[in-house]
Amino acid sequence: MNAAVRWLAGLPAYLWSGWGAVASLLLCLALWEWLAGFYGELILPDPRAALSTLAGLLAGGGAWSELGITARRALAGFVLALAAGSALGLAAGLSMTAAMMSRPVVTVLIGTPPIAWLVLALLWFGAGDGTPVFTVFVAAFPVIFVGAMQGARTVDGQLAELAAAYRLPARMRLTDVYLPHVLSYLFPAWITALGISWKVVVMAELLATSDGVGAALAVTRSHLDTAATLAWILAVVGTLLAVEYLLLEPLKRAVERWRSTT
C-alpha cells in the first residue's frame, strides 16, 4: 500500500528521467538515417520507412497476434528458468559442495551456443511450442542459477550473527535478513535472463515454427522486404525496451530503494 503510493509518486520523475534515453535512441535513428542515405532502399531503408511499415503492421492487427505468440513462448521458457534457476541456485549456494560441483556444469551450459540447443530441441520436440520454450529455458537458466547461487553464497556472516544475537525467529531471518540480500542478486539476473529469452525466442522461431515474430522475419527475408524486416526488429526491440523500462526498472528501484544513493 505504502509502497504503491510511493511508486505512483515517483512515477512522473522516473518517466521524465527517460528523456536522456530517448535522446540517445534518437541519435541512433539519426545514424541509421545517415547510413540509409548511403545504401539505398533495398539494403537499408530509412527509419521512417521502417516505422511506417511497422505502423501498418500494427494497424492491420496481424502484428499483435504474432507478438503475442512470441511473448507467450518467451515467457513460458523464462518462467520455467526462473523457477528452476532460482530454487536450484539457492540450494547450490547454501552448500559449498553443491556450489563446487555445479560450477563447471554452469560453465558448460553458458558456453554452449543457443543454436546448438536449438538443433537438439528440433530433434527432440519437433516444430511446435516445445522447441522455442526449451531453447529459451536452456539459455536463461544458467544466468539465473549463477545469480541465485552468488546471492546465497554472499550472505553476510556478520548479519547472520546479528540475527542470532537478537534472537530473530527463523521466519524473520528469512524475510528480513536473507531474502533482501538474495533478491539484490536475483533481480538483475532475472532482468538479464528476460532479455536473453526475448532474443533467443525469435531465433528459435525463425528456424523452428510457422508463426510468431521469428517466423514473420523468415517470411520477410524470403521476400527481400528489408523495410518489413526492420519493422519486425523494431517491434521486438521496442517491446523489450518497454518491458524493461516501464515494468522491470521501476520495480527494481522500488525493491532496492535502500541501495540508491540519490
Binding site: 550473527e161 544475537a165 537478537y166 528480513d176 535478513v177 540480500h181 535502500w258
Partner: peptide
C-alpha cells in the same frame, strides 16, 4: 541480553 558489535551491523535494506 543485548549486544552492540564492533561495527554497527545495520540491515542496509531497513531504515
Amino acid at each position: 541480553p543485548a549486544s552492540v558489535f564492533q561495527q554497527p551491523r545495520l540491515l542496509p535494506w531497513k531504515n
